[in-house]
């Protein structure tokens, strides 16, 4: 079966002034459909860089990366945007909701860019994450857990194959964080591939697999 993510010798080097920073160095791994994978490691180990590459928000300096069998090497900015829009959903630590839009409008946002009819899908997702009663509320009227559920619903709108989450429980209390972990597990059980960057032990332990990054290199899998 074709892996959802296939990374081979993935490297990313930044230039900071005259200094070269090797954020990622020859990272290789594969992630299959329906897996919940936690990317862990100390700060500055390259977790966010890896997530950016997986989400086609940045391009590797060298190495090969395929998302759902689509090689990303040499793709234009437009093609990367299309791949990101159609195949990947994002969940941010600080939710990334647009403050001027309502819950429902935030969920429908990716549809605005994909040009798809998403009204019913948005309503369905709103129900699915238990926010029917909050549909017309603005983000500032929601609790942290509710905002993260809106972010997850938005990430699922375009029916992606891959969900990338950056510290999805980082801003939540343990009870709310627990409900988010359950939701992510539920999604993987339904076949969605989820990659989370986390410092949360509970979330990392709930993952089927952990990728441990240290100084941009992948430590042996746990």
């Amino acid at each position: 079966m074709q892996p959802v993510i296939s990374a081979l010798n993935l490297s990313k080097t930044y230039r900071r002034g005259t200094e070269q920073v090797h954020a990622l160095a020859s990272v290789s791994f594969e992630i299959g459909a329906g897996e919940l994978v936690a990317v862990v490691g100390p700060s500055g180990s390259g977790k966010t860089t890896l997530l950016n590459l997986l989400g086609c928000m940045d391009v590797p300096t060298s190495g090969d990366l395929s998302i759902m069998g689509h090689p990303t090497r040499g793709l234009s900015e437009r093609a990367l945007t299309r791949l990101r829009r159609d195949q990947v959903g994002f969940v941010f630590q600080h939710f990334g909701l647009i403050p001027t839009l309502t819950v429902e409008e935030n969920i429908r946002l990716p549809g605005l860019f994909s040009g798809k009819q998403v009204k019913h899908r948005a309503a369905e997702l709103c129900t699915r994450v238990g926010l029917d009663h909050r549909r017309r509320h603005r983000p500032h009227e929601l609790s942290g857990g509710e905002m993260q559920r809106v972010a997850i619903a938005r990430a699922l709108l375009n029916e992606p194959h891959l969900l990338l989450a950056d510290e999805p429980t980082g801003n939540l209390d343990s009870v709310t964080g627990g409900s988010i972990i359950s939701l992510l597990q539920e999604l993987t059980a339904q076949g969605l591939t989820v990659v989370v960057v986390t410092h949360n032990d509970r979330l990392a332990e709930s993952a089927a697999r952990r990728l441990v990054l240290e100084d941009g290199r992948l430590a042996p899998s746990i």
Partner: peptide, 12 residues
Amino acid sequence: DLAVMRAVGASR
């Protein structure tokens, strides 16, 4: 917000 829009699929 614009970066979030780009992340969720908005083209340039």
